[in-house]
Protein backbone atom coordinates (compact mmCIF):
# COMPACT_ATOMS: atom_id res chain seq x y z
CA UNK A 1 0.00 0.00 0.00
CA UNK A 2 2.76 2.45 0.92
CA UNK A 3 4.53 1.43 -2.24
CA UNK A 4 1.45 2.31 -4.16
CA UNK A 5 1.21 5.60 -2.40
CA UNK A 6 4.83 6.34 -3.22
CA UNK A 7 4.23 5.66 -6.87
CA UNK A 8 1.23 7.91 -6.88
CA UNK A 9 3.11 10.62 -5.10
CA UNK A 10 6.03 10.36 -7.47
CA UNK A 11 3.97 10.68 -10.59
CA UNK A 12 2.01 13.47 -9.04
CA UNK A 13 5.12 15.27 -8.05
CA UNK A 14 6.16 15.28 -11.67
CA UNK A 15 2.71 16.46 -12.67
CA UNK A 16 2.80 19.21 -10.10
CA UNK A 17 6.16 20.36 -11.25
CA UNK A 18 4.97 20.26 -14.81
CA UNK A 19 1.88 22.25 -13.94
CA UNK A 20 3.91 24.78 -12.03
CA UNK A 21 6.02 25.20 -15.11
CA UNK A 22 2.92 25.50 -17.23
CA UNK A 23 1.51 28.07 -14.87
CA UNK A 24 4.67 30.03 -15.23
CA UNK A 25 5.28 29.26 -18.85
CA UNK A 26 3.98 32.46 -19.98
CA UNK A 27 6.80 34.56 -21.02
CA UNK A 28 5.71 38.09 -21.27
CA UNK A 29 7.91 37.84 -24.31
CA UNK A 30 7.93 41.44 -25.24
CA UNK A 31 9.40 42.56 -28.44
CA UNK A 32 12.42 44.22 -27.01
CA UNK A 33 13.88 42.82 -30.21
CA UNK A 34 17.06 40.90 -30.48
CA UNK A 35 19.03 43.70 -28.82
CA UNK A 36 21.05 43.28 -25.64
CA UNK A 37 19.14 42.58 -22.43
CA UNK A 38 18.90 45.55 -20.11
CA UNK A 39 21.24 45.43 -17.16
CA UNK A 40 19.52 44.42 -13.96
CA UNK A 41 19.48 47.33 -11.52
CA UNK A 42 19.27 47.19 -7.77
CA UNK A 43 16.19 49.04 -6.51
CA UNK A 44 14.97 49.90 -3.04
CA UNK A 45 11.42 49.09 -4.14
CA UNK A 46 12.23 45.55 -5.34
CA UNK A 47 11.48 42.50 -3.23
CA UNK A 48 8.76 41.70 -0.72
CA UNK A 49 9.78 44.49 1.64
CA UNK A 50 10.61 47.04 -1.03
CA UNK A 51 9.84 50.71 -0.48
CA UNK A 52 10.62 53.72 -2.64
CA UNK A 53 13.63 55.85 -1.83
CA UNK A 54 11.94 59.22 -1.21
CA UNK A 55 15.00 61.22 -2.22
CA UNK A 56 15.34 59.25 -5.43
CA UNK A 57 11.69 59.62 -6.39
CA UNK A 58 11.82 63.34 -5.62
CA UNK A 59 14.89 63.75 -7.81
CA UNK A 60 13.21 61.64 -10.47
CA UNK A 61 10.26 64.00 -10.46
CA UNK A 62 12.65 66.92 -10.97
CA UNK A 63 14.19 65.17 -13.98
CA UNK A 64 10.75 64.37 -15.34
CA UNK A 65 9.63 67.93 -14.91
CA UNK A 66 12.67 69.61 -16.38
CA UNK A 67 13.35 67.18 -19.20
CA UNK A 68 10.63 64.66 -20.05
CA UNK A 69 7.64 66.91 -19.39
CA UNK A 70 8.48 68.97 -22.46
CA UNK A 71 6.96 66.21 -24.59
CA UNK A 72 5.50 63.53 -22.28
CA UNK A 73 2.46 63.86 -20.05
CA UNK A 74 1.68 61.82 -16.93
CA UNK A 75 -2.03 62.32 -17.26
CA UNK A 76 -3.09 59.51 -14.93
CA UNK A 77 -1.40 61.31 -12.04
CA UNK A 78 -2.89 64.14 -10.01
CA UNK A 79 -0.77 66.76 -8.27
CA UNK A 80 -2.17 65.59 -4.94
CA UNK A 81 -0.55 62.18 -5.51
CA UNK A 82 2.84 63.79 -4.98
CA UNK A 83 1.95 64.41 -1.33
CA UNK A 84 0.36 61.05 -0.68
CA UNK A 85 2.12 58.35 1.34
CA UNK A 86 4.17 55.86 -0.62
CA UNK A 87 5.55 58.29 -3.19
CA UNK A 88 7.86 61.30 -3.21
CA UNK A 89 5.82 62.61 -0.26
CA UNK A 90 6.25 66.30 -0.94
CA UNK A 91 4.49 68.55 1.60
CA UNK A 92 0.95 69.75 0.95
CA UNK A 93 2.24 73.32 0.60
CA UNK A 94 4.85 72.26 -1.96
CA UNK A 95 2.21 70.44 -3.98
CA UNK A 96 -0.15 73.39 -3.84
CA UNK A 97 2.55 75.73 -5.05
CA UNK A 98 3.56 73.30 -7.76
CA UNK A 99 -0.02 72.80 -8.98
CA UNK A 100 -0.49 76.56 -9.21
CA UNK A 101 2.39 76.73 -11.70
CA UNK A 102 0.32 74.71 -14.18
CA UNK A 103 -2.49 76.13 -16.27
CA UNK A 104 -5.61 73.98 -16.34
CA UNK A 105 -8.30 74.29 -19.01
CA UNK A 106 -11.67 74.85 -17.41
CA UNK A 107 -14.90 76.80 -17.85
CA UNK A 108 -15.92 79.86 -15.88
CA UNK A 109 -19.36 80.64 -14.40
CA UNK A 110 -20.63 81.69 -17.79
CA UNK A 111 -19.45 78.58 -19.57
CA UNK A 112 -16.58 80.35 -21.28
CA UNK A 113 -13.35 78.35 -21.63
CA UNK A 114 -10.64 79.72 -19.36
CA UNK A 115 -7.22 78.69 -18.13
CA UNK A 116 -7.01 78.74 -14.38
CA UNK A 117 -4.24 77.88 -11.94
CA UNK A 118 -3.93 74.22 -11.11
CA UNK A 119 -5.07 72.78 -7.79
CA UNK A 120 -3.84 69.64 -6.04
CA UNK A 121 -6.95 67.74 -7.17
CA UNK A 122 -6.20 68.37 -10.86
CA UNK A 123 -4.54 65.83 -13.09
CA UNK A 124 -1.23 66.64 -14.72
CA UNK A 125 -2.53 68.19 -17.94
CA UNK A 126 -2.35 66.50 -21.30
CA UNK A 127 0.10 68.21 -23.58
CA UNK A 128 -1.89 67.63 -26.74
CA UNK A 129 -5.57 67.37 -27.58
CA UNK A 130 -5.02 63.92 -29.07
CA UNK A 131 -2.39 61.58 -30.46
CA UNK A 132 -2.66 63.00 -33.97
CA UNK A 133 -1.88 66.50 -32.76
CA UNK A 134 1.07 65.14 -30.80
CA UNK A 135 2.34 63.24 -33.81
CA UNK A 136 1.98 66.31 -36.00
CA UNK A 137 4.20 68.28 -33.64
CA UNK A 138 6.84 65.68 -32.83
CA UNK A 139 6.83 63.34 -35.81
CA UNK A 140 5.62 60.55 -33.53
CA UNK A 141 3.24 60.90 -30.60
CA UNK A 142 5.26 60.95 -27.36
CA UNK A 143 3.45 58.39 -25.18
CA UNK A 144 2.00 59.27 -21.82
CA UNK A 145 4.44 58.06 -19.16
CA UNK A 146 2.02 57.30 -16.30
CA UNK A 147 2.20 53.52 -16.58
CA UNK A 148 5.29 53.32 -18.81
CA UNK A 149 7.32 51.37 -16.25
CA UNK A 150 4.74 48.56 -16.45
CA UNK A 151 4.07 48.89 -20.17
CA UNK A 152 7.58 47.90 -21.21
CA UNK A 153 9.32 44.64 -20.58
CA UNK A 154 11.81 42.30 -22.10
CA UNK A 155 12.08 38.55 -22.34
CA UNK A 156 14.56 36.75 -20.11
CA UNK A 157 13.91 33.49 -21.92
CA UNK A 158 13.55 29.98 -20.55
CA UNK A 159 14.24 29.07 -17.79
CA UNK A 160 14.88 32.47 -16.21
CA UNK A 161 11.33 33.68 -16.70
CA UNK A 162 10.08 30.78 -14.59
CA UNK A 163 12.30 31.73 -11.68
CA UNK A 164 11.19 35.36 -11.94
CA UNK A 165 7.97 34.37 -10.16
CA UNK A 166 9.63 32.46 -7.31
CA UNK A 167 9.67 33.74 -3.74
CA UNK A 168 13.12 34.94 -2.79
CA UNK A 169 14.37 35.38 -6.33
CA UNK A 170 11.31 37.03 -7.88
CA UNK A 171 12.14 39.64 -10.48
CA UNK A 172 9.45 42.14 -11.37
CA UNK A 173 11.49 45.12 -12.51
CA UNK A 174 11.86 44.31 -16.20
CA UNK A 175 10.08 47.46 -17.27
CA UNK A 176 11.92 49.92 -15.09
CA UNK A 177 15.26 48.30 -15.93
CA UNK A 178 14.44 48.65 -19.60
CA UNK A 179 13.79 52.37 -19.09
CA UNK A 180 17.17 52.84 -17.43
CA UNK A 181 18.87 50.91 -20.21
CA UNK A 182 17.05 52.89 -22.87
CA UNK A 183 18.02 56.24 -21.38
CA UNK A 184 21.65 55.07 -21.25
CA UNK A 185 21.43 53.41 -24.64
CA UNK A 186 22.40 56.36 -26.88
CA UNK A 187 25.86 55.05 -27.50
CA UNK A 188 26.60 56.40 -30.97
CA UNK A 189 27.94 59.89 -30.51
CA UNK A 190 27.24 60.86 -34.11
CA UNK A 191 23.61 59.73 -34.10
CA UNK A 192 21.37 61.01 -31.28
CA UNK A 193 18.51 58.80 -32.51
CA UNK A 194 20.44 55.52 -32.37
CA UNK A 195 19.65 53.48 -29.28
CA UNK A 196 21.16 50.14 -28.37
CA UNK A 197 18.05 48.95 -26.51
CA UNK A 198 15.23 50.25 -28.68
CA UNK A 199 13.70 47.64 -31.00
CA UNK A 200 15.14 48.39 -34.41
CA UNK A 201 17.60 50.81 -32.80
CA UNK A 202 16.14 53.95 -34.39
CA UNK A 203 14.14 55.88 -31.82
CA UNK A 204 12.28 59.12 -32.56
CA UNK A 205 13.21 60.52 -29.16
CA UNK A 206 16.70 61.97 -29.52
CA UNK A 207 19.01 61.52 -26.54
CA UNK A 208 17.21 63.62 -23.92
CA UNK A 209 19.76 63.58 -21.08
CA UNK A 210 23.21 65.01 -20.64
CA UNK A 211 25.50 65.31 -17.61
CA UNK A 212 24.80 68.29 -15.40
CA UNK A 213 21.51 69.07 -17.11
CA UNK A 214 19.36 68.93 -13.97
CA UNK A 215 20.55 70.44 -10.74
CA UNK A 216 20.15 68.25 -7.65
CA UNK A 217 20.04 69.89 -4.25
CA UNK A 218 20.97 66.81 -2.26
CA UNK A 219 24.46 66.07 -3.50
CA UNK A 220 23.52 63.13 -5.70
CA UNK A 221 25.74 62.88 -8.79
CA UNK A 222 24.43 64.95 -11.66
CA UNK A 223 25.12 62.42 -14.36
CA UNK A 224 23.06 60.74 -17.06
CA UNK A 225 23.42 57.42 -15.24
CA UNK A 226 21.95 58.91 -12.08
CA UNK A 227 19.23 60.86 -13.91
CA UNK A 228 18.16 57.72 -15.75
CA UNK A 229 17.87 55.74 -12.53
CA UNK A 230 16.05 58.49 -10.67
CA UNK A 231 13.50 59.26 -13.35
CA UNK A 232 12.87 55.54 -13.90
CA UNK A 233 12.23 55.08 -10.18
CA UNK A 234 9.83 58.01 -10.33
CA UNK A 235 8.03 56.40 -13.27
CA UNK A 236 7.83 53.11 -11.38
CA UNK A 237 6.01 55.02 -8.68
CA UNK A 238 3.62 56.70 -11.13
CA UNK A 239 2.92 53.29 -12.65
CA UNK A 240 2.33 51.62 -9.29
CA UNK A 241 1.53 54.30 -6.68
CA UNK A 242 0.14 51.68 -4.29
CA UNK A 243 3.26 49.51 -4.41
CA UNK A 244 4.26 50.16 -0.80
CA UNK A 245 0.75 49.62 0.54
CA UNK A 246 0.48 46.43 -1.49
CA UNK A 247 3.69 44.93 -0.15
CA UNK A 248 2.90 45.96 3.40
CA UNK A 249 -0.58 44.46 3.21
CA UNK A 250 0.93 41.37 1.65
CA UNK A 251 3.19 40.85 4.64
CA UNK A 252 0.26 41.02 7.05
CA UNK A 253 -1.82 38.70 4.90
CA UNK A 254 1.00 36.18 4.65
CA UNK A 255 1.65 36.19 8.40
CA UNK A 256 -2.04 35.71 9.05
CA UNK A 257 -2.39 32.90 6.54
CA UNK A 258 0.61 31.02 7.91
CA UNK A 259 -0.83 31.11 11.42
CA UNK A 260 -4.23 30.09 10.09
CA UNK A 261 -2.91 27.24 8.00
CA UNK A 262 -0.87 25.98 10.96
CA UNK A 263 -3.95 25.87 13.15
CA UNK A 264 -5.90 24.16 10.40
CA UNK A 265 -3.16 21.61 9.97
CA UNK A 266 -3.40 20.57 13.60
CA UNK A 267 -7.18 20.68 13.57
CA UNK A 268 -7.20 18.45 10.52
CA UNK A 269 -4.76 16.04 12.10
CA UNK A 270 -6.81 15.91 15.26
CA UNK A 271 -10.07 15.23 13.43
CA UNK A 272 -8.56 12.63 11.15
CA UNK A 273 -6.67 10.93 13.95
CA UNK A 274 -9.51 8.50 14.49
CA UNK A 275 -10.23 7.92 10.81
CA UNK A 276 -7.02 6.31 9.68
Amino acid sequence: MSELKDMTMKSFKSICLALALAGASITPALAAGAGPSPERQSWTFAGPFGQFDRGQVQRGFKVYREVCAACHSINLMSFRNLAEPGGPEFSQAQVKALAAEYKIKDFDDKGEPVERDGRPADRFPKLFANADAAAATHGAAPPDLSVMAKARSYSRGFPMFVFDAFPGIAYQEHGVDYLVALLNGYTKADDPNWNAYYPGNMIKMANPLSDGQVEYGDGAPQTVVQYARDVSAFLMWTAEPKLEARKRTGLNVMLFLFVFVGLLYFTKKRIWADAH
Binding site: I26, P28, L30, P143, R152, G175, A239, G250, V253
Partner: peptide, 22 residues
Protein backbone atom coordinates in the same frame (compact mmCIF):
# COMPACT_ATOMS: atom_id res chain seq x y z
CA UNK B 1 -4.67 31.08 -0.65
CA UNK B 2 -1.05 31.43 0.42
CA UNK B 3 -0.05 30.57 -3.12
CA UNK B 4 -2.69 32.97 -4.50
CA UNK B 5 -1.58 35.78 -2.17
CA UNK B 6 1.97 35.54 -3.38
CA UNK B 7 0.79 36.51 -6.86
CA UNK B 8 -1.54 39.26 -5.69
CA UNK B 9 0.85 41.02 -3.37
CA UNK B 10 4.31 40.32 -4.72
CA UNK B 11 4.24 39.44 -8.43
CA UNK B 12 0.85 40.79 -9.52
CA UNK B 13 1.81 41.51 -13.12
CA UNK B 14 3.85 38.39 -13.77
CA UNK B 15 1.00 36.46 -15.38
CA UNK B 16 -0.17 39.49 -17.33
CA UNK B 17 1.41 41.14 -20.28
CA UNK B 18 3.24 44.47 -20.36
CA UNK B 19 1.52 45.46 -23.60
CA UNK B 20 -1.80 45.54 -21.80
CA UNK B 21 -0.63 48.65 -19.97
CA UNK B 22 -0.67 50.39 -23.34
Amino acid sequence: LIFFSWWIFYVPNYLGHADNYI
